[in-house]
Amino acid sequence: MDFSIIFGNAARAAFGPEAVILALAAIGLNVHFGYTGLLNIGQVGFLLLGAYGTSVSVATFGWSLWAGVVVGLLLSVAFAVALGIPTLRLNTVMFAMVTIAAAEIIRILIGSTDAIGLTGGPLSVSFDAGAFYDLNPYPDGPHDRYGIGTFEFTGQQLWVITVGWLLVALVTAGVVMLVRSPWGRVLKSIREDQDAARSLGKNVFSYKMQALVIGGAIGGMGGVIDAIKTSGADPNGFRPQVTFFAYTALLLGGSATYLGPVLGAVLFWFLREWIESFLRQIVEEAWLPDVVAEFFDGAEGVISVAMVGVALILLMLLRPQGIVGNRTEMQLDAR
């Protein structure tokens, strides 16, 4: 058994573009849920609009990639506004249901054969993200690799994750500046008790809307990175469980903490890939009786996602505040 391969793979996943996308989705959720208490379980809808906004603008309308990025972000903002106007007055559970239903509706519509002309429908859509890779400063020959062992990236991948993690850093800094201000204090007061905030003259609807738009746009950025990374978008990549993964990352790291969503996303992908690699090695090295090995063979991905489920349950039971969260704060929730 070669643990350097396992850890290399895990590290590559932990710092790869998937982790960037998950981190952005989770930061958005942190603004929604962590600070404002909005239980958005349709975050994947924002990612979808970011990704499809970018892809369709370039692939179908022939606009430049940068215009596409702007369109993707605008679409996720528009979704936040459209979703928020009728729903922000609802209670937590009702709001949650509407968000997941709305995200599913968009996915069904975009992925239908009727939409082939616009979005590619079930065929998915692809475009040329050359404008992004033209800026790549890393030499990207067929043999250029960066990293050690299995922890290595091509020049293009390295460029995507450089930009991606820079974006994560910028967004995190922005969120920190916002929530440290009196504005952030109002958000937290809404999370704690919106009637108290109203009784002190805060326009709760307006603040919730601002939070929904900001968190949604951050999720949209994740979608844009996803589109650029894969040079396209596929409706199957935006199923409801993407949102649940983002919540796992957020809760793993710690809700309503500055670095929680980022650490959580890194850890999420590290653990998932570690488990998958580990199982693959076990199967390859024939440590196990054939029957068991056969059972695991090809099911590594399925098992690692099952572990996400286990992680969610254990987290809620054992450490609901996450890695960097504050235990006392969490206990005050038990009302």
Binding site: L39, V93, F244, Y247, A306, L312, M316
Partner: peptide
């Protein structure tokens, strides 16, 4: 808290399906 329970069931859902 109700949210924790919700997340537990989401985790169960993922686990069960997998």
């Amino acid at each position: 808290w109700i949210f924790q329970l919700l997340v537990v069931t989401i985790g169960l859902s993922l686990l069960g399906r997998q």
